[in-house]
């Protein structure tokens, strides 16, 4: 039996009936057609589906939409106007932090959260913090470089996510 939920997605108020078994990821992708949130494993390991739930990164594939009634969700699409995310994206572009692009939305969400919490993170810290986002293309070197560069720029501009 479907359950009615109301939540905020990228600033918009959404009210929908969902099957209890529907994951947040499928809700975003199939109901709202927000397809930046990718599914790479559907069991919470690869990190491609990472989105912000109430201000903190979460795996959309193992969050049930029904349980997020009242929550505030933000996906990569919702960061289009975000200044810090703009800097991070540009850093990924400059430092070659992506290849096929499939892991990229999850990487960006995790990277932004990392920079917000640990703007001074060194290579080891960045690698540890990003260990829950798998990338099969880059070998992570470009990603680490991108995050370091973005963190440096944001801090020199006195901006934090």
């Amino acid at each position: 039996m479907k359950v009615t939920i109301s939540l905020t997605v990228n600033g918009a108020q959404i009210r929908r009936d969902v099957e209890p078994r529907t994951s947040l990821a499928d809700f975003l992708r199939e109901e709202l057609r927000l397809t930046a949130t990718h599914l790479g494993c559907e069991h919470g390991v690869c990190g491609a589906c990472t989105v912000m739930v109430d201000g903190a990164p979460a795996r959309a594939c193992i969050a049930l939409a029904v349980s997020l009634d009242g929550a505030e969700i933000r996906t990569v699409e919702g960061f289009a106007e975000d200044a810090a995310m703009g800097v991070i994206k540009e850093a990924f572009h400059q430092e070659h932090g992506l290849q096929c692009g499939f892991c990229t939305p999850g990487m960006l969400i995790s990277a932004r959260d990392l920079i917000a919490r640990h703007p001074e993170a060194d290579d080891v810290g960045i690698r540890r913090a990003m260990s829950g986002n798998l990338c099969r293309c880059t070998g992570y070197q470009g990603i680490v470089r991108s995050i370091k560069s973005a963190a440096r720029q944001l801090s020199s501009q006195g901006k934090q996510p």
């Binding site: 990190g47 979460a58 829950g132």
Partner: peptide, 9 residues
């Protein structure tokens, strides 16, 4: 434990 996104929930 696991990863930050998992630790958050």
């Amino acid at each position: 434990i696991a990863y930050r996104a998992v630790r958050n929930r």
